[in-house]
């Protein structure tokens, strides 16, 4: 097994008396895209600031490629490209000179920068704006410049804090495509509160809430684990008043919700966990002489899972 590129153990960080994160541990393998998912203020940014070496954790430790971000900070920082949420840029510099400057800070030689600059500009599609002052660029282009500075030194670890926030839908699609591309060779950690983004981009997702990891899995497993076969949607041709009690009477059915959509009667059935009730339901419907127009398992959407994990109320 490959050793983890990022290894975080027991991270806890206090701002004054309040813990922003508590006992957060995780590992990220080489070439993996890990998503941090959580509501605002859950501790995503704090965790990322610790990984990148911007601030040390109150307790716990992080290693990047085996280097401790506090004890061997310079070595660890050499391996990181970081895009903070606010996309901080020097607004009075041109795109070219800004990228050159960031490259130099990341320890690249002028020669290496020259060789790499064109590539980064192409990848981030900044070709027409090389000489433009950053302050005059739109938000979407600034975001691209932000990503360009994060990848210019070809870091092994790329940390992106909310990389698609505040840009228009077309640019969101582009940015995601870019991240997916980068994730092929690099280890990427990104945070978001946009759920579809997670299923689209990430190999694995950590759901973080109130400073703690509440779930960790692939987006697919996460959805499957919480829904399994226990939720079904059935469309039945028959009088709702009669169908409803019949469905409720089937063994293993916990709950039935009925919706009438212009004469299309749909019933959402919540079964006891792990039970596959498809056969029982279809038999019940047919033996009563109604028509079974549709029967399907419905995945709980990532939204619902997320809400279930991050709110205290039952859905």
């Amino acid at each position: 097994m490959q050793p983890d590129m990022i290894q975080a153990e027991g991270l806890t960080h206090y701002y004054g008396p309040y813990p922003a994160i508590q006992d957060v541990s995780f590992g990220v393998r080489k070439g993996e895209i890990l998503g941090f998912l959580g509501p605002n203020g859950a501790g995503k940014t704090t965790t990322m600031r610790i990984i990148t070496g911007f601030m040390p954790p109150t307790h716990g430790k992080v290693t990047l490629d085996g280097y401790d971000v506090v004890e061997q900070s310079l070595e660890a920082r050499r391996r990181v490209g970081y895009l903070p949420e606010t996309v901080p840029l020097y607004t009075d510099m041109s795109v070219n000179s800004y990228l050159k400057y960031m490259g130099t800070l990341r320890g690249m030689s002028p020669k290496a920068i020259k060789a790499r600059l064109g590539e980064v500009i192409d990848v981030c599609r900044l070709g027409d704006y090389r000489k433009t002052q950053i302050g005059k660029l739109s938000k979407g282009f600034r975001q691209r410049v932000g990503i360009a500075q994060a990848i210019i030194h070809e870091p092994q670890v790329l940390v992106l804090d909310e990389p698609t926030i505040g840009i228009d839908p077309i640019q969101v699609v582009e940015t995601r495509r870019l991240i997916k591309e980068l994730g092929k060779d690099q280890t990427v950690v990104l945070s978001t509160h946009i759920l579809p983004e997670v299923s689209m981009l990430c190999d694995r997702v950590l759901i973080i809430n109130e400073g703690k990891i509440v779930a960790e899995d692939t987006p697919k497993n996460l959805a499957a684990g919480l829904q399994g076969v226990d939720r079904l949607e059935v469309e039945v041709g028959g009088p709702a008043a009669e169908v409803l009690p019949v469905l409720k009477a089937i063994r293993g059915v916990n709950e039935v919700a009925h919706t009438n959509n212009d004469g299309r009667h749909t019933y959402t059935i919540q079964a006891e966990s792990g039970q596959d009730l498809r056969d029982a339901i279809s038999q019940a419907v047919i033996s009563n002489g109604w028509s079974l127009r549709g029967l399907q398992m419905v995945g709980m959407s990532l939204e619902e899972i997320f809400l279930r994990l991050t709110t205290h109320e039952e859905l």
Partner: peptide, 14 residues
């Protein structure tokens, strides 16, 4: 103020 300090301090610069 600009937040660029975050990039400065996460670069391998002493």
């Amino acid at each position: 103020k600009l937040g660029t300090i975050e990039l400065l301090l996460t670069s391998p610069v002493r």
